[in-house]
Write a protein that binds this DNA or RNA. Structure first.
Length: 464
RNA sequence: GCCCCCAUCGUUCAGCGGCCUAGGACGCCUGCCUUUCACGCAGGUAACACGGGUUCAAAUCCCGUUGGGGGUGCCA
């Protein structure tokens, strides 16, 4: 039997990292087994689905390198779902119910679900839609519904705790359970890999499948959730979760993909950062962890830095150039950057950024204006003995020195040696506004003499 | 309230009854390298939630406690 898995996002928002990981695990399993990976857009709720978001889901999946073999849209399959529901109605597994929410609550209280009030009342189908009449599914009163979860082991629910749930809304549109059960059956899905937040809907889907005549069920694998630092499920409101936003901030798709996979799964050999081909080779659903995992951006940053350093220099230049002209957070805006100038700086940048959006702060002092030095940095670097003297000497020699990196280094470091003072840091702070950053002299050689001297003398004046 | 699930360093993954005086990675700290920072390299810090069993032997199996999470919609 060939593996068929699906990723079924609802287009109600941008793809977030949790969904992306679900997609990834499905995709990994399909690729590992030579199976089929299906993208199924679950857009049965017209009020909440936004068609234009489907494109953004495509974009995020493609960005991550997740490709799909088949695609379906549930909004195009309503006829099938309605036929399925009609069968339930015909054989008594489904029934009409005209109870309002308040009426149910009045009968059973706040903490209980539906009480089966309309099971045998013979409520008739509404003349027109939206007359407040829904279709419910008759769940068994006894027995258990369960499955052997690939990740969690045996999970069981007493049928007595399962309410007769709604399968068709009062507006005539079938609920996602129906679509889900019908499609998994119709599409011959063999493995359902999805978030743990869906475990409790599984018995409903299982029951629906049986009502649909399924002789067996797919294997289920419920993934542990990705949580924030409060250990709560990642939320679109509270947390930074949109895959697209990470792409914009300068994360590499390979790094994001690799990191996401390490949340809940690890290879036996303890190697985390590795080509996707190796991961595909080693991946198996049964090895996935049960416990929720915290989305640690700092570790993502580390992965990203590693991937950035693995980039061919030309590729790094290409990918980071658009960020180079971005506004810097520390200093003034760098405005548009001359690509030829940036090309010379890129090699130094590549070695020390973890994200592309760190590029502007790295180069602003060469291509634009440096930020005002931090007071603490200033005190630490500039208030040492001899700083004024070194600055004077450096300026004097720089006025006539040959404008070339080696010479500049010699001038600055030489002056320091002669006076027995560390000269690199004061010059760096005066020039770049920061205590750390790229190597000093190569970029400095790309600046013009007047600008360099002006910055040095400005710092020198401040010392008096 | 009811249902379901989870529990190894701060974080993440490894460990699937003896190889564990618990390993890797991120973070943090120290040193080396070095024009600063970063990279790299060499070290260090730090965990089996608790209590009972089972067993010759438990981080690993069972039960309970505690703690955490998810669900409980005419959303998916």
């Amino acid at each position: 039997m060939t593996v068929r898995v699906r990723f079924s996002p609802a287009p109600t928002g941008f793809l977030h990292v949790g969904s992306a990981r679900s997609a990834l695990f499905n995709w990994l399993y399909a690729r590992r087994t030579g199976g089929t990976f299906i993208l199924r857009i679950e857009d049965t709720d017209a009020d909440r689905s936004r068609p234009e978001l489907v494109q953004s889901i495509y974009d995020s999946l493609r960005w991550l390198g997740v490709d799909w073999d088949e695609e379906y849209r549930q909004s195009e399959r309503f006829d099938s779902y309605r036929r399925a529901v009609q069968r339930f109605l015909d054989n008594g597994q489904g029934y009409y119910c005209d109870c309002s929410r308040d009426a149910v609550k009045a009968r059973v209280g706040e903490n209980a679900g539906y009480d089966g009030h309309c099971r045998d009342r013979g409520v008739v189908p509404p003349a027109e839609p939206d007359g407040g009449v829904v279709v419910r599914f008759r769940t068994p009163d006894q027995g258990v519904t369960g499955w052997d979860d690939l990740i969690r082991g045996r999970v069981e629910f007493d049928n007595s705790v399962l309410d007769d749930f709604v399968i068709v809304r009062s507006n005539g549109v079938p609920m996602f359970h129906v679509a889900n059960a019908y499609d998994d059956l119709d599409m011959a899905i063999t493995h359902v890999v999805r978030g743990e937040d869906l475990v409790n809907t599984t018995p409903r889907v299982l029951l629906l499948r049986e009502a649909l005549g399924a002789s067996d069920h797919p294997l289920y694998a419920h993934l542990p959730l990705i949580v924030n630092e409060q250990r709560k499920k990642l939320s679109k409101r509270r947390d930074d979760v949109s895959v697209g936003d990470y792409a914009k901030r300068g994360y590499l798709p390979e790094a994001m993909r690799n990191y996401l996979i390490t949340l809940g799964w690890g290879s036996k050999d303890d190697i985390e950062i590795r080509p996707i081909e190796e991961i595909i080779e080693q991946f198996d659903l049964v090895d996935i962890n049960k416990a929720p995992a915290f989305f640690d951006v700092r570790k993502l940053d580390h992965f990203n830095g590693e991937y950035i350093r693995m980039l061919h220099p030309d590729r790094f230049f290409e990918l980071s150039l658009p960020y180079a002209g971005g506004a810097s957070t520390g200093g003034a805006s760098t405005g548009g950057v001359d690509p030829e100038l940036y090309r010379k700086l890129a090699q130094f940048v590549q070695e020390r950024v973890k994200r592309f959006d760190e590029v502007p702060d790295m180069i602003d002092w060469v291509v634009g204006e440096p930020p005002e030095p931090d007071d603490k940095d200033w005190r630490k670097v500039m208030t040492k003995d001899g700083v004024s003297k070194v600055l004077d000497l450096v300026m004097e020699r720089l006025a006539t020195a040959e404008w070339e990196a080696d010479v500049l280094a010699q001038v600055v470091l030489g002056a320091g040696d002669e006076l027995g003072v560390k000269s690199q840091l004061p010059v760096r702070l005066a020039l770049t506004g920061r205590r750390s950053g790229m190597p000093l002299f190569e970029p400095m050689a790309e600046m013009d003499r007047a600008t360099v001297l002006a910055r040095l003398s400005r710092a020198r004046e401040r010392l008096d």
